[in-house]
């Protein structure tokens, strides 16, 4: 464990010095993420011009939800996204060999090697946005509510990573260059909507099979509404199952990996 922490610190050091080499890109990335946040806030602002409640939430409650999924996205962009971007190419080109022979977990190495230092600034901005949203929230809340929200949002970021992996790992079998990354980005929209809008089989899809709707919506529901065990246990159970599934597919994928490039 200690070795992995030390290794991760080296990853951080390397990533920050690399980010500083491309200063213009560093600034562009910050502006891009600010635009992403603005567009999301404006989207719901426009909807609230025409309705007073969306999925049972008022505008100030919705702002907390928006800030929450922006935070999840920022964590994902900072910690995982660059690694995820390259993973499919590495499998496709046979570059995984170099990682399989290293004396560290290849999953750890491939998922965390590149810390996106330029997105780190946006992580700070998204924390600021969540603080602003909480400051404008009309109802009272306790520190324990806030702690639970933050812990569940971090869990949400890990779920988001698992979902992304599930749509990349088919590359082991399809040999395509990007896996289903485009599909993943489209599905991300389900994370950006309150889970209550989904009914029937679509609800099953987004809350159990590919649980995008659990990532931010369930944590915010547990924060805004009274804590309830079924919602919490649902979240915990799906998280555990998702990890088991992702690790199982990763292992099977490694067995199917031929090393030859395509």
């Amino acid at each position: 464990m200690k070795r992995y922490v030390r290794l991760y610190l080296y990853f951080l050091q390397f990533s920050f010095s690399k980010a500083m080499e491309f200063r213009l890109d560093f600034s562009f990335r910050i502006i891009m993420d600010i635009v992403y946040s603005l567009v999301n806030i404006l989207f719901f602002k426009i909807l609230f011009q025409h309705t007073t409640l969306i999925a049972g939430w008022r505008e100030d409650q919705m702002l907390i939800f928006v800030a929450s999924y922006i935070l999840v996205d920022a964590i994902s962009m900072t910690v995982f996204s660059t690694n995820m971007w390259w993973l499919a190419f590495q499998i496709n080109k046979g570059d995984l060999d170099y990682h399989l022979i290293r004396p560290v977990s290849p999953l750890f190495f491939l998922s965390l090697r590149e810390f996106s230092a330029n997105s780190f600034m946006n992580l700070l901005i998204s924390i600021g946005l969540l603080t602003y949203a909480l400051g404008h929230y009309a109802d009272p809340f306790s520190w324990s509510d806030l702690f639970l929200l933050l812990a569940l949002l971090i869990n949400g970021a890990l779920m988001y990573y698992c979902c992304q992996m599930l749509l990349i790992l088919p590359v082991f079998w399809t040999q395509s260059a990007r896996g289903f990354m485009d599909l993943f980005y489209s599905m991300g929209i389900a994370m950006e909507r309150p889970d209550r809008i989904f009914k029937g089989w679509l609800r099953v899809l987004f809350t159990i099979v590919l649980p995008f709707a659990l990532i931010a919506s369930f944590p915010v529901r547990l924060f805004l509404e009274k804590f309830n065990w079924p919602t919490f246990l649902h979240l915990v159970a799906v998280t555990i199952l998702l990890w088991i599934l992702m690790l199982g597919i990763w292992r099977r994928g490694l067995r199917a990996y031929s090393s030859a490039s395509s």
């Binding site: 909807l47 025409h50 969306i54 485009d182 599909l183 489209s186 389900a190 909507r193 809008i197 679509l202």
Partner: peptide
């Protein structure tokens, strides 16, 4: 097909709820 259907179904779910609530 996935991209098209998902975006359609998510948007449909949202608007269905807004139309119903209004």
């Amino acid at each position: 097909l996935g991209q098209t259907l998902i975006q359609l179904l998510v948007a449909r779910s949202l608007w269905q709820m807004i139309f119903a609530s209004e």
